[in-house]
Design a protein around this nucleic acid. Sequence first.
RNA 1: GGCUGGAUGGCAGAGUGGUUAUGCAGCGGACUGCAACUCCGUUCACGCCGGUUCGAUUCCGACUCCAGCCUCCA
Length: 461
Amino acid sequence: MEITLHNTQSGQRERFEPLVPGEVSVYVCGPTVYDLQHIGNGRPAVIFDVLVRLLRLAYAKVTYVRNITDVDDKINAAALESGESIAAHTARYAAKYLEDVAELGVLPPDVEPRATGHIEPIIAMIAKLIDIGHAYEAEGHVLFHVPSDPLYGTLSKRSLEDMRDGARVEVAPYKKDPKDFVLWKPSTPELPGWDSPWGRGRPGWHIECSAMIRTHLGPVIDIHGGGSDLAFPHHENESAQSRCVNGGTPSVRYWLHNGMLTFGGAKMAKSVGNVVTIRDLLDRHGGEALRYALLSGHYRQELQWEESLTHAERSLDTLYQALRDTDDGGNDTAASYSTAGADTFPEDVLDALCADLNTPRALAAMHALAADLHRAEDDDSVRALRTALLAGGWLLGILTKSPQEHFQGMAQDATVERMIEERNAARAARDFARADEIRDDLAARGIQLEDTSDGTRWRRT
RNA sequence: GGCUGGAUGGCAGAGUGGUUAUGCAGCGGACUGCAACUCCGUUCACGCCGGUUCGAUUCCGACUCCAGCCUCCA
């Protein structure tokens, strides 16, 4: 199984090979938890969840770390406004984030580190950067000196001159160079702070990821993922400081960046005001439909979020319908294939995912399997195709429910069953007017009937 | 202004130097008491202008437009 991935560092698609044969380390930038997360924040969670599922098939050991940023100026402001303590505020929104992405079918990472739990390694890294001449202290701040790193800018492909042109930030007077960024900054008594060689303060944004990566995965990792909006300055800075601490060895071998979700022609972002929270969407749609919608575009492309999720819901119905029509009474779902061997998984789905995580092509392959399953006539073919479809579903994180649950929900509905019986009695008596009346009545209540050779079944619409 | 990426059928969205993406929707047919589900068939396409080529949606160049980043941001 050969996996190719587009590496932002090289700007090209490369064959993936882990540093240590058979072992893969993955780090993904998680959210800053000061508010509810919107569906755009859900995209990397889902994308990299699929990547990790794929990697686990190909490699014996995969360690996946996704952080939670719980110290940040926005958090401080939000907590102040809500009147609760900063710790309580972040704990609340971190919990909500984890619930949200769980609903999207995202498996928990192996480690979910928080910035506030890693102050020691952060301070150690900063001290090292000062030691080796890449950082300096000024007025209680510690800053990374960008001109000290000749490779700065190579990840996000911009020269120092380009940035000077675009500089719109107010330059703090204590900076040696306008591009220098903060590693450590002083805190006032009411703000979160930790003692350090440079006084009581808190870490800058970028250093936390570098320190957490180093702590949990070591000085060099295989894959680092995140949104394309993080490439600069966050990842550029992270890359610079970690590389310098490593004595010149890059800390990340493959940089992966997902494209932005757009809504109404612009990037979905709080500052634009066009966000839809995951929680809000979950009130009206299944998490699985949201996941399908997120996977329907290639991760590197921009994806247009639509008001209506009908496309995703109908598409998902088609896949479930194939399973429903061939249901043999067993209880297997995609979840049954979580530990299956690589040869269990359908080749077309696997190939698509191995090609830089081409989820739209993988979904097309799923639909091809569903169509084949519908057409299959002998039991062996049906069994093989069901297995293939469900196994593919596991990789993509869909088809995790029984068709019954998907179409009818968990609740029993005795009234519906009774009305179906009554309608079938009318049909037997060729009283079609009465039969249609019952069917219309059910339709008005969101119940769609399907008469099959095995009897009448129903689904919620 | 600089850098990056894009422009594909009604909508979403892959891919390819010559051959069906796929899904949703539409249309015709089969099945059905009629529907629904499903199956079969089918309409609709590659921003614009040049170039390379036997042949370009696919490669090259110009242009137009769009998005992202350059500030917190998934």
